[in-house]
Design a protein around this nucleic acid. Structure first.
Lengths: 213, 213
DNA sequence: TAGTGTGAACGTTTTCACAGCT
DNA sequence: AGCTGTGAAAACGTTCACACTA
């Protein structure tokens, strides 16, 4: 056993492999190969084997991988074996969609609480949970022992809410706010921004247009 | 002038720089430095200078960068100077949020059309636009001369809709569907998946827990 | 024989450190 | 004097190609 550190780029692909393995399980497939799995994941076979090698040797030469066993290994590596409590801050359209997504497909997660600042939203029930007042954010985080939060709130209040979450004990934040947030060492921040994604597409559209134009 | 190819990783950061430059403009700042801009963007000064160097030399040694001029250069490089038509497919909570986002902050984009399959949604007005029937997807794409589409629909129909979009002339797709999509050469696909993002956070949470536990 | 696991080659991205310009 | 722009070095990531083994 050689517990090498798993590279960032590999970690980013593990969830895709896990989904592919779940699909295969659902189809009743019990054994797979790096070729098949790579195809499903949209990567090269060599890359897939290299990625999996960081989790240890779980394949059988000449045969392939046991779908169920490999699925367990990937899930264990990702740390999605026990449900992680997630607090969603901001229950507009986006927060609403996120809450339903996590509540629905929640493999490895559960929506621990929903929080908003809008009095017309507080008290309503979304994804089976009553929306609570952001004023009690710290209590909610401590009550649920949540370490992960999702931010779907206006830019203007994002840094303040982020600071309060960290102060209350959150160490992982997924933000949909189009703004750079500052977090202390030891807190992981992942940012998803529609504007950024569209602008990257715009760049490639321009390049393609230039080649023709 | 040396029009070197802009690396992928640099392209991914340009939108962040553009936002930072717009913030500075809003604050009335006319000149900035790699140090200040890097701070706002959350990257190192050397990385920022290297990134900007791919767009040509626009800084002044000993002084810094002209905020307005640099903003124009970055916008031009990204291809967000003229509004790009975007079709949003799927107007559930997520599609709704995306439509409002693009319609609101739309620097470089405009929502050309909204499309859905649900009869109770078709005909309703969202973000100032009437939702159209997905049955007429191809006509909508051609009518608006849209080259970019956003997918916020159920997994089961995603590949089919994707194929139809490509067939109709779309060459850039941003998908929020948790599934690997196949697109032909020449079509750019960017994927955003909440489940993947949360699982990456779970990985880091586990690592931190292991260091303490 | 078929398919894994991995050393080695290759390509990309980041960082350093400083020459060069204003 | 101060900040940019960039060679050179280091770090990181991907792909190749094949030895190895069930």
């Amino acid at each position: 056993m050689t517990p090498r550190p798993v590279p960032r780029s590999t970690v980013a692909r593990l969830p895709i492999y896990l989904r592919a393995l779940e699909e295969l399980t659902a189809q009743g497939v019990t054994t797979t190969s790096s070729g098949q799995l790579a195809e499903l994941a949209g990567v090269g076979p060599a890359q897939l084997r290299r990625d999996l090698s960081f989790l240890g040797s779980h394949g059988v030469r000449g045969v392939g991988y046991d779908v169920e066993h490999l699925g367990e290994q990937v899930a264990t590596a990702l740390g999605v074996t026990a449900d992680l409590a997630v607090v969603i801050v901001g229950v507009g359209n986006l927060g609403h969609a996120l809450a339903n997504y996590v509540a629905g497909t929640g493999q490895g997660f559960r929506v621990a609480a929903l929080v908003d600042a809008d009095p017309t939203v507080i008290g309503t029930v979304v994804a089976g949970l009553e929306v609570e007042d952001v004023a009690g954010l710290e209590e909610v985080v401590r009550r649920e022992e949540a370490t992960v939060a999702v931010l779907a709130i206006p830019s203007a209040v994002a840094q303040e809410v982020c600071d309060r979450l960290v102060e209350a004990g959150v160490t992982g934040i997924l933000t949909f706010v189009p703004r750079v947030l500052q977090v202390p060492e030891g807190v992981d921040l992942r940012s998803v921004d529609l504007g950024t994604e569209l602008q990257i597409l715009a760049f490639h559209e321009q390049r393609k247009a230039a080649l023709r134009g």
